[in-house]
Design a protein around this nucleic acid. Structure first.
Lengths: 210, 210
DNA sequence: ACCGAAGTGGAGGATCGCCGTCCACTAGCA
DNA sequence: TGCTAGTGGACGGCGATCCTCCACTTCGGT
């Protein structure tokens, strides 16, 4: 995902680096970006020393994970936008791609800490903007198709996702995955064009997100 | 809300106790139940000493707040159940009563810590059960009215609420209240009876919550 | 108005968990 | 096979939070 500004890593080191990012991804998504570094190291199967060698501090790790993940979401959105049979369908598919999206939401909207860290990173800012543009486009097209209700904007969709997709502490439900899938499905029905109640205020666009 | 098992408190002490619970309510709802005790004390306008005098430890405070709040939600639900023009309308009203409900959700479903503390308290268990029964009743009646889609249960409604009602870090939106209101409205449209997509799995009842 | 008991607040000692370094050891690569 | 990059985890340091303690204040009965 990123160029090698310096000497390329040795093969095993590169492998460890990838494992760290993968582990951090999973853990950040489920427990937020403030988990002890040692926990991430353990999940990645490396020692803390290795973690710190690769990422000088927590911020660097968060940035690396964010860039990696945002890029993934953007790819996904672009691919769906082209391949799906309709913009509406693309949007729906995007929502059901829970895991990746969830982490992005967590990092972009839910964690105060992560936001502080990411807000000044131009690479992240660029990816974020690109994702929002893509969503905006899907929203407009889905509305033109007559599938998506007219009184919502990309901001509404993003906010709704951020809420729905966030993981509930798994221990509180007997069937967490099912519960999540059902929540998403209900939400999607709420977004459908059709006989609906008028929403308060005006549609929230992507610029209503900070 | 609770009997006085011992000597009644002096007037000023009672006032302080109420202020502490009120402050804890607000703070727990917005920042979870792990905030430093000193912060709660400050918000209540008392010293930590006073806080600890009244509630020997954090657990005791959480329990007191939870009982107080659950009782409020239960009252509310019962009142709406009787006074609202329909069960559907009662459900909708309940959802829009964000603040109180939000805290209950936070304590009951969202915070691992709070759950640990509350799960063995019989008073909390009783109130929780009573609230779920009430919601279950509203769900069944609203379905009989033909207003609520048939393929959902009280568990679905509870889960959906828990997700929607959770506070997003306010700093990330230009209009947080509006965004929340719109999310709730969209969700309610998703719950309406009408031409909907079939949901995966079976309806989640109140017993699917742990 | 007085006084004893109840209540108060916040300084500070004790504790805790996390950070990030450091270095003896291991494993890739030429 | 030798040289260097890479590894892991023990550990010293530290900031944050808990909760106690007690000199001082306030309440409320007489």
């Amino acid at each position: 995902m990123s160029a090698d500004p310096e000497t390329p890593l040795r093969a095993d080191a590169q492998r460890n680096r990838d494992q760290i990012i993968a582990a951090a991804r999973v853990i950040f998504a489920s427990h937020g970006p403030e988990v002890p570094m040692e926990e991430i190291a353990r999940a990645a199967g490396v020692g803390v020393g290795t973690l710190y060698r690769r990422f000088p501090d927590r911020d660097a790790l968060i940035r690396a994970v964010a860039v990696d993940n945002f890029a993934g979401v953007l790819d996904n959105a672009k691919r769906l936008s082209v391949e799906a049979p309709s913009a509406w369908e693309a949007l729906v598919q995007l929502l059901y791609h829970g895991a990746e999206l969830q982490l992005s939401m967590q990092l972009a909207m839910l964690s105060q800490r992560a936001h502080e860290i990411l807000k000044d990173d131009p690479e992240v800012a660029h990816l974020r903007e690109a994702v929002l543009l893509e969503v905006d486009d899907l929203v407009v097209r889905a509305q033109a198709e007559g599938a998506l209700r007219k009184d919502v904007g990309a901001g509404d969709v993003a906010v709704l996702f951020a809420r729905i997709v966030r993981q509930l502490p798994a221990h509180r439900l007997k069937t967490p995955e099912l519960a999540t899938a059902r929540s998403i499905a209900i939400m999607i029905d709420g977004l459908r064009a059709g006989p609906v109640t008028p929403l308060p205020g005006r549609p929230l666009g992507k610029d209503d997100l900070i």
